[in-house]
Every structure is written in C-alpha cells, then in structure tokens.
C-alpha cells in the first residue's frame, strides 16, 4: 500500500473545509503523516481583504483540539484556482500523496461536472483523493 507521508487539505476557512481538515488530522495522527492546509488565492481573493493569519489560527486551533502536534500541520497559500492549486500539491515542493477536500454543496446543477471543485478535482487529481461529506450531508441511521 502507498505510504502516506503528506496529506494536502483544501482549506478556505468554510465549515466544509474545516470538516475536511479535521478528517485529515484524524487520519494523519496514527500514520505519523504531516498535514498541509492548502489555501488557493483566486483572482477575487485579493479584493476581499483576506489575511492568512486567520487561516493559520484556525488550523492551529483545530490541530490542538484533535491532539495533533502543531508542528506537523502547516498552512500553504498558493496563487491560483482551488482545483489547479490542489493538483499542483501532489508535485514538489508539497509532494502530497493524498488530497482531501470537503464536498462543498457547490455543484449547482447535478449531473454536470462544471461548478463543483470536488468533482473537477476527482477528474484531474494525480494522487488519491478523498472527498469528505459536509456535516449536513451525513444522514444518521
């Protein structure tokens, strides 16, 4: 089986991306893998007065809450659209061997690939991809 040493998680600060990050942190702990929370800076992000310190503190808090050593979690901010940035994360310097994203209810038109980052990524990813359902997608038995 593939040795999983680096897990890259798509992280934009949304609740769905927090769910994905927590899932990745839970997986990383027993594997001894490092987790990279990847934030893609799109064209519009520079107009939104966005700051990386908020992301960093959220990631640190979630790591602590899940008993993961903060040193094993890092934040990586890359220019580009979310899909391309995550695909690039499987290459150096991040070298992720697993990508994790939230499912985001972003596919507005079911049946169409367009408009859904996770489905686009499923088609383009060069390493294994996990799509974590958002909290409200999970129906209790």
């Amino acid at each position: 089986m593939t040795d999983i040493r680096t897990i890259a998680v798509g992280f934009d600060g949304s609740p769905d991306s927090e769910v994905a990050l927590v899932w990745a942190l839970d997986l990383a702990a027993p594997l001894g893998a490092r987790v990279v929370a990847v934030h893609a800076r799109g064209l519009l992000s520079r107009l939104e007065g966005w700051s990386s310190s908020v992301l960093e503190s959220t990631v640190t808090r979630l790591a602590r809450e899940h008993g993961v050593s903060v040193g094993d979690v890092s934040v990586c901010v890359e220019e580009g659209d979310a899909c391309s940035v995550l695909v690039r994360c499987s290459r150096p310097p991040v070298d992720a061997d697993l990508l994790v994203v939230g499912s985001r209810g972003d596919g507005k038109h079911p049946g169409l690939l367009l408009g859904s980052t996770s489905l686009e990524l499923a088609q383009r990813a060069e390493v294994a991809l996990v799509i974590v359902p958002s909290a409200h997608d999970v129906v209790s038995p």
Binding site: D12, A40, G42, L43, L44, S45, D81, A82, C83, D106, K108, H109, L112, L113, L114, G115, T117, E120
Partner: peptide, 16 residues
C-alpha cells in the same frame, strides 16, 4: 457542458 450549465441557469463555475 458549458452550454448546458448556462441554459440550466448558470452559477459560479469556480471561486472567481
């Protein structure tokens, strides 16, 4: 797909 997406009402194709 792009034609179908638009005729279905459109929306955000990605974050931008």
């Amino acid at each position: 797909e792009l034609g179908a997406y638009c005729y279905a009402g459109g929306g955000n194709l990605d974050e931008d």
